[in-house]
Every structure is written in C-alpha cells, then in structure tokens.
Simulated scan of single mutants.
Amino acid sequence: MDTRDKILNVEDFVQIRSNRDLGRIVFTNGCFDILHPGHVDYLERASSLGDTLVVGLNSDKSVSRLKGPKRPVNPARDRTRVLAGLACVGFVLVFEEDTPYELICKVRPHVLVKGGDWPVEKIVGRDIVEETGGMVLSLELTPGHSTSRIIDRISNG
C-alpha cells in the first residue's frame, strides 16, 4: 500500500472497514509532534497486538489547545506523512476534538492502547471498547525519550 493511501478521513476508513477484512484492529492516538525512538517502539508494540494499527492524530488546533500555542512543532500534514511511512502503521486519521472519543466510536477497535503515563481507567474510549468485549491497555513508555525533552534541548542549546 502506498504511504499516502494510509492517510484517511474517518468516513473513508469506515467505508474501507465495511468492505475489507482488517482483522483485529488496534487503535491508539496522540500528537506525535516530533517522532522519536520512544514513539516508534510504542507504535510497533501496539501494532503487534492485532492485525491493523489505526493511529488517531490530533489536528494542529487540537494540539495547540492541549500543549500550548507553540505546538505543534510540525503541522498535521507532516506528522501524518511520517506516521504513515512506518511499516507498523495501517492507517492515520486526523481528528479535531481534544479527545478521540467520537473517532473511537466510528473506528470500533478491538484493542485500545495508550502509553504508560495513562492508567487504563482514564483512557478515553475505554467504555466503547470494553462494551464490545475488546481490550484496553496501557503500554510502558520507553525510558529517556520525550518530545518535551527534545524541545527543551533545542530551546536551551
């Protein structure tokens, strides 16, 4: 599949899901502003939990609301392209809201995953996934890697 074919709006994804067997769908979401080894490790581990990894990506406006006016560093068109270039990522869907709740309702994943800084009971969309017998997991983060740390290092020389 061409990398650009992995970047969809939610309506197109729903159409593909209804016409094709995507197997066990794993969903995660985030800003993925400056992709680093911790992100790649996390996404590879998330992908290993199923057949198709769907990444919900916060839009630029959503990132700014969540992280502040200096973020994102990279615009959504660049962040989607980089994520879609990873072999472990099946699809990338940009969402405008502050949480992926509505997106999760439409994607209907079998597995919902967030990083270890999110306790399972606080993961948005947990109710949707568990209602249908799915799994919700919090994966341990890779130590020593964070976007904030990279930004601080760049800012402070």
Rank of each mutant, 00 (worst) to 15 (best):
I104C: 09
A87F: 07
P109K: 13
S48V: 06
L49R: 14
K61I: 02
L112G: 00
E97G: 02
H39I: 13
G56R: 10
S47M: 05
L49C: 01
V120F: 00
T80I: 02
T52S: 01
I123Q: 12
K106F: 01
A87V: 08
L112I: 04
G56E: 12
L49P: 01
V120C: 00
R81G: 02
P37F: 09
L43G: 10
V92L: 10
P100S: 15
S64G: 13
R71K: 06
E97W: 00
H39T: 13
G125L: 11
F95I: 01
G116Y: 07
Y101D: 08
R108L: 15
G90I: 06
V73Y: 12
K61F: 07
P119K: 13
G116Q: 05
D127Y: 10
E96Y: 07
G85C: 08
V113S: 10
V136S: 09
L103I: 15
R126S: 14
V129Q: 13
T52L: 06
G115F: 11
G90P: 02
T80Y: 04
V89M: 07
V111K: 11
E97Q: 08
E121V: 01
C105L: 08
K67A: 00
M135A: 04
A87N: 08
E44F: 03
N74S: 02
V89F: 05
D98I: 00
Y42T: 12
E44A: 15
